[in-house]
Computed example of a mutant assay.
Amino acid sequence: MASIDLNSDLGESFGAWRLGDDEAMLDLVTSANVACGFHAGDPTTLLNTCRAASERAVRIGAQVGYRDLAGFGRRFLDVAPADLTADVIYQIGALDGLAQTVDSAVAYVKPHGALYNTIVHHRDQARAVVAAVVAYDPTLPVLGLPGSVFLAEAEAAGLRTVAEAFADRTYTPAGELVPRTEPGAVLSDPGLVADRVLRLVERGEIEAVDGSVLHTRADSVCVHGDSPAAVAMAAAVRARLDASGVDMTPFV
């Protein structure tokens, strides 16, 4: 039987500003990439998200990013490696502390936004993130894009690597995410998204923006919590996979 983990970026509300429906998403996903306060999220939001995840036995991941609340962590920052390592340790530790107060803990690490995309190729920053995870807890798995230098550096450092695919994002023919600044980068049709995920899980294929077929593997599939119709998309994906006999289970 095929199996897959379904994850989503959650805990991204800030103060009076509400973003996404964490409670609804937590009823559908098996892993939650919870913001750590640098790109989004305030302490109360993060604690509440961790509590809701713990109540549902959803795994909690630290979604670490650049210190960029104004840009939602989607702008590249030329951070010195030593500073980036310290920033990532700080974020993992903060979220882990909150999670432990609600009978859970950080179970993995996933970079967010611009940091995620930067360390596909930027080896110095990739090594800085890896160094942070190794320093904090070398048993923590890391999520990343297949073929990225981040996963290569993580594997070389002895970390468990988890290949991730995106349900609601389009891909270039090279297997990278189409930048959000380009038209068609984000998908919003729940039926289309569900079809893409099932094809990926069953056949290891996903269609690029030029119509070519990419062959890849994924241990986890992400549905962004802030995407249009995020809950509807996650529900459609879950229903399609359940109907096809795919086992929905956390990777850790």
Rank of each mutant, 00 (worst) to 15 (best):
G245L: 11
G144A: 13
A24T: 00
S220M: 11
A234F: 00
L198D: 07
E182C: 11
D226M: 01
A232C: 11
L47W: 11
A52N: 08
E164T: 00
A114Y: 02
V120M: 14
A105S: 07
M1I: 13
A154S: 14
A86Y: 01
P138Q: 10
A32W: 04
L28M: 05
A157W: 13
V142L: 02
A86V: 04
D5V: 10
P138C: 13
D189V: 06
D68M: 08
G11Y: 03
A165S: 07
A107Q: 05
A52V: 07
D21L: 01
T49R: 04
Y108C: 00
V246D: 00
V221Y: 00
A135G: 03
T44F: 09
S31W: 03
D21R: 10
T170A: 07
G73L: 04
A235N: 05
V79N: 10
E202A: 05
S212W: 15
T161W: 08
S104I: 01
E23K: 12
I60Q: 04
L241G: 01
D103V: 14
P179G: 03
T118A: 14
R18P: 08
L115Q: 01
G37H: 15
T161I: 04
A234N: 02
D103K: 11
A167L: 03
I89G: 10
W17Y: 09
L84K: 11
E176C: 13
G97K: 05
F166L: 03
T249H: 09
A157M: 06
L200F: 07
R196D: 14
E182P: 13
A99R: 02
D219P: 06
A194Q: 00
T118H: 15
V221A: 09
E182D: 13
A208Y: 05
H112N: 07
V149F: 08
D78P: 14
F72M: 06
E155L: 14
T30P: 15
R59W: 12
P250Q: 09
W17C: 14
E155S: 13
L143R: 04
T44P: 06
S31G: 02
T85K: 13
A40S: 05
D168A: 13
D87P: 12
P173F: 02
V58Q: 02
S220D: 12
C50F: 12
I119T: 00
P146F: 10
R180S: 05
I60E: 07
L6M: 08
W17M: 11
V252D: 14
V246P: 01
I206Q: 06
A230V: 08
D189G: 01
P146G: 04
S212E: 08
L140I: 03
D42T: 01
R217E: 15
L192K: 11
G15K: 07
D9S: 03
